[in-house]
């Protein structure tokens, strides 16, 4: 799965820590998601999308291997 989390976070000028606090996870989890090392749960994905006021599909996309 690919994601635009880092891009969206930069647009909103959030640090990883700030974004982590908004959605209720650790900063390391946000880092892991941005690096593609962790696929977030549906709940977390929806929370992230709500923070950026965008549909979840704009932030997370399936890639060819999924």
């Amino acid at each position: 799965m690919k994601n635009r989390l880092k891009v969206e976070r930069a647009i909103m000028d959030f640090t990883q820590q700030q974004l982590a606090e908004l959605v209720g996870v650790s900063r390391q989890t946000i880092n892991a998601i941005e690096k593609g090392n962790y696929v977030p749960s549906t709940t977390l994905s929806l929370k992230l999308a709500r923070v950026f006021s965008k549909p979840v599909e704009e932030i997370f996309q399936l890639d060819e291997n999924d």
């Binding site: 209720g24 996870v25 650790s26 989890t29 892991a32 962790y38 977030p40 709940t43 977390l44």
Partner: peptide, 9 residues
């Protein structure tokens, strides 16, 4: 002390 879904994973 800081528990989130990745820790649970």
């Amino acid at each position: 002390k800081v528990e989130d879904e990745f820790i649970a994973h």
